[in-house]
Design a protein around this nucleic acid. Sequence first.
DNA 1: AATGAATGAGGATTCATTCAT
DNA 2: GATGAATGAATCCTCATTCAT
Lengths: 196, 196, 196, 196
Amino acid sequence: MFENYNKVQQAVLETTLNIIIRKELQATSMALIAKESGVSTGNIYHYFKSKEDIVNELYKAIVTFNGEQVRGGLLKGTTIREKFELGWNRVIELGKQYPQGFQFIEQYSFSPYIYEEVKLEVYTGGWCGPMNELYQEAIREKLFIPMNPKMMVQMHYGTFVYMLKAHLHGIFELSSESVSGAIRSCWNAVTLRDIT
Amino acid sequence: MFENYNKVQQAVLETTLNIIIRKELQATSMALIAKESGVSTGNIYHYFKSKEDIVNELYKAIVTFNGEQVRGGLLKGTTIREKFELGWNRVIELGKQYPQGFQFIEQYSFSPYIYEEVKLEVYTGGWCGPMNELYQEAIREKLFIPMNPKMMVQMHYGTFVYMLKAHLHGIFELSSESVSGAIRSCWNAVTLRDIT
Amino acid sequence: MFENYNKVQQAVLETTLNIIIRKELQATSMALIAKESGVSTGNIYHYFKSKEDIVNELYKAIVTFNGEQVRGGLLKGTTIREKFELGWNRVIELGKQYPQGFQFIEQYSFSPYIYEEVKLEVYTGGWCGPMNELYQEAIREKLFIPMNPKMMVQMHYGTFVYMLKAHLHGIFELSSESVSGAIRSCWNAVTLRDIT
Amino acid sequence: MFENYNKVQQAVLETTLNIIIRKELQATSMALIAKESGVSTGNIYHYFKSKEDIVNELYKAIVTFNGEQVRGGLLKGTTIREKFELGWNRVIELGKQYPQGFQFIEQYSFSPYIYEEVKLEVYTGGWCGPMNELYQEAIREKLFIPMNPKMMVQMHYGTFVYMLKAHLHGIFELSSESVSGAIRSCWNAVTLRDIT
DNA sequence: AATGAATGAGGATTCATTCAT
DNA sequence: GATGAATGAATCCTCATTCAT
């Protein structure tokens, strides 16, 4: 998840993510990060400007990683339908595989602690871009209903996010059938009925 | 939003919400709450056990309020379709009218700072209950596809939450047409096609 | 010396002066001030904005006190000569009686740590004002040579400051004869010879 | 000013002086000295034992330099009066030409940060020695009043220091006339009247 | 000689909370 | 009930110094 960073930075970012999810940002002290990451406080400040900087870097790193993963999934498909399924499947997979990263983004995407510019990268540099394009193409091909593609993508993302959330809260299990059911339902929600 | 509380408690809860959204939980000090609410720190402790208590009370109050509002909307409808539309419309309305409350719940629904028991009330005492029942009924009547109704509700809730989020982030505008379009699309996503 | 402050502020200012002279500003930590003054760190910040604020307040307080003392001395005299002698005597007395205050002003009058506005008060609100007027009057009465009175006052102040400095460094003793000799010598330095 | 030191030491001393005057000793970190001098921290420690060592070396260097300059000035004169004028002129010249060095000595001559032994060098190895001798000679020749020569030198030095201080604080300008006026006035202050 | 990453004690300051009034 | 002065532990961060390279 943090391949673009050096050893020290990786240790700090990983540890920080772990503590924030476990204990809240409030309780995530530099002393604790230092202790758990094995990097001295002084040296943390050699690689990061401030605590805020660490958290923002973390946000950016996760968003970037997620973006790459989803984009990678999308590209493996050939038809629009395949791409649709592979893309959203990756979103779910990511959430299940990296629940901490997923929760972190969820919790802090509205936080004033994350710089506005960093937040906007989700919509630009993240996975939204390729997904938006896919939806646009589907509309052009009269496969999807003529709605704002960005909005449709957001709506579907919300669908999967909340499935994951409820799953992580223990409200219900997330079997692969329910996931493919959900994906199918999303597909149905936006395809032109008579065309099918 | 805080009708069940006395004047002092209301002032404290309102102020706290305001500061948390504006500045993060981290930066929400008791001194600041005291100053902005006009209630002395000593007196705040007369009405609340601790800072944690305030924030959890706030969470509970907003969830309860939202629940009442959505339930109120639902009950006005007669047919399942009407209830469906009125209910989700209220969700959107609430988010637009009380963006701070909406953002607060979004940010802190995963936070370890909120007691697990309080968080679970969303699913039980909140608006989810009546909505779950509505979906269950729709399935029984062969109107909706046979899926876990709780999951369907979560999915749709996610849909609207992310429309609101993107709207609040300034990604796109939320016209009443796009809202009703989204509601219709959700309806289509889960209704049995041949029945329509 | 700190009559215009409350008990807590007095304790803090006195302690700070003491430590700064004994140990340097660098080594004057808030923890030490708290310990030696018997005021908790938290409470110090209730009465002072910052460490810088304490030190600047200290500077201001000493300068004001010195000003009042010297002005008080001046006024007791009737003739110019008497005022001259009483005034400068007070300067020396102050330095001997409050060596810490004297050293502090000496050391920090050039320091960037003291706000420029606070520093300028020495020349305006301090004892310089009345002294300048005295010299001006003496020039008008053809008693003193026609020189910039402000400069003359500074020169004489420097004379006494360096006597005190050397005295405090243990270079020589400061007997009352040597002081009156010095004052006489200053008087001779600026009086018109033939007039005497 | 630092001719007796090698390139690296010169860079460090110059930079340190500059920062101390600009920012206070407190804010003069080794990291900043390293950055501004272009010498790495590690290498600074190759040439200096500690930060304290740098500052004390700086003090010593400036005092020595000033001493040489003033002594050099003195020697150019032949009569006592000439030596007197040339010597004090050099003091003023030095202050105007090297204001940072002048301010540094002024600020730190009382500081516990400077080792007592280093401070005493001002009075022995500095310019005071030759000046003291000059005054002693003048007394012997019945030119000056019979006062402690060391004290007289200190007094006069204070006179010029405070002229410079007020000048550097922007209280008044220091024209060459006012300087020679001040020197003359000092001369008059200590010469036996009837002798002139 | 020279570098700058690494250390961790110590710095100023803030904070939740208490309690005398 | 209400106030806000007082507490001191805990916070983020800096700093002089060391040491492997």
